[in-house]
Computed example of a mutant assay.
Amino acid sequence: MLEFLVGSGLAAAAGLNAWMPLFALGLLDRFVPVIDLPASWSWLSSDVALWITGVLLVVEIVADKIPAVDSVNDVLQTVVRPASGGIAFGAGASAQTVRVDDPSLFAGAAWVPIVVGVVIALALHALKASVRPLANVATAGVAAPVLSAAEDVSAGALIVAAIFAPVLAGALVVALIVSAVLLLRRRRRHRSGTSVASVPRP
């Protein structure tokens, strides 16, 4: 069960920022003895992978804070973030971490964690991509850097929690989804009320 929570936290982080969990997994496997990726995922800690994910992480962090560009970035990331979530879940759930010494939940079905990770990351990405345009319109773009910074912090917190406190990571994933859904409902209710109020009475 713990390996599922580890993978879920990493996949959810990928739904907010595609490259952060991959870069973090690679760095931790390479330099810090808190995670040991299995051979099938060890390429994440190679020089090439670290350089590529590191550069793409910086690009996404910057692009996501620019109004209008952030929405274009979300469209481009519709495929990338779920794919990253699948990789992050697969690597994290099968790794030996400080909290998961003998992962066995997905033994014999290597494709299952990848699919689960894709679904989790896609769900978070869809919520993020839905909330951002509404916030940009409501605040004339002022909210973009603030929301983006909050998402970066959330992604980082999910990664740390997934590795060191998987149960907390699971709770954070649920809290993120609930918060995003409530925000969307509130915005839609507000827009509906505004539309009704603007209809001229006979």
Rank of each mutant, 00 (worst) to 15 (best):
V137P: 00
V112R: 03
V167C: 05
K128C: 05
A39C: 00
K65A: 14
V112Q: 08
T53I: 05
A123M: 11
R191H: 07
V160T: 06
P166K: 10
L57E: 06
L176P: 00
V115G: 00
A93N: 03
A161Q: 09
L105N: 06
R201D: 11
A12K: 04
V174Q: 07
V115Y: 04
V174R: 03
S198D: 13
F89K: 11
L147E: 09
G92M: 03
V142T: 12
S195N: 13
L147S: 07
S84E: 03
V199E: 15
V116Y: 08
S179A: 15
P33E: 12
P166A: 04
V153R: 04
S8V: 05
A14K: 10
I52T: 10
S8R: 12
L37R: 08
P33R: 15
G7P: 08
D70M: 01
A63Q: 11
S192N: 11
S84Q: 02
A143V: 03
V32Q: 11
S42N: 14
S198H: 08
M1G: 03
F31D: 12
I159A: 02
K65E: 13
F106T: 01
W19T: 05
R201W: 08
V178R: 14
P202E: 11
L5D: 06
N17V: 02
V116L: 15
G193P: 00
S45V: 02
R185E: 12
A149G: 05
V137L: 10
P38K: 08
F89W: 05
A107Y: 10
K128Y: 09
V34P: 03
A123E: 08
L22N: 05
L5R: 11
S8W: 05
L124I: 13
A155T: 03
R201M: 12
L28F: 09
R99K: 15
A171P: 00
S192V: 07
I114E: 02
A83F: 10
A18K: 04
V58L: 15
S179N: 13
E3R: 09
A126K: 13
A180T: 02
A110R: 13
S130N: 09
G90E: 01
V115P: 00
R191N: 07
V181M: 12
R186T: 11
R187M: 15
A24V: 13
A95Y: 05
A135V: 03
I114Y: 14
V59D: 01
I163L: 15
A171Y: 07
P113L: 09
L127W: 14
V75T: 12
G92T: 09
L22A: 01
L5I: 02
M1Q: 03
A39Y: 08
D101W: 14
P33Y: 10
D101Q: 15
R189N: 13
S198W: 10
I61G: 06
S40C: 04
V58E: 04
L2M: 15
V196D: 14
L124F: 13
P166E: 02
D29C: 04
V75P: 00
I159L: 01
A107C: 01
V48K: 13
G85D: 00
V131C: 09
E3Q: 12
A107M: 06
V98G: 15
L122C: 05
Q77I: 03
A93S: 15
I52Q: 04
L182A: 14
A135E: 07
G15S: 07
V32C: 08
A68P: 00
S71A: 12
I163S: 03
S104D: 10
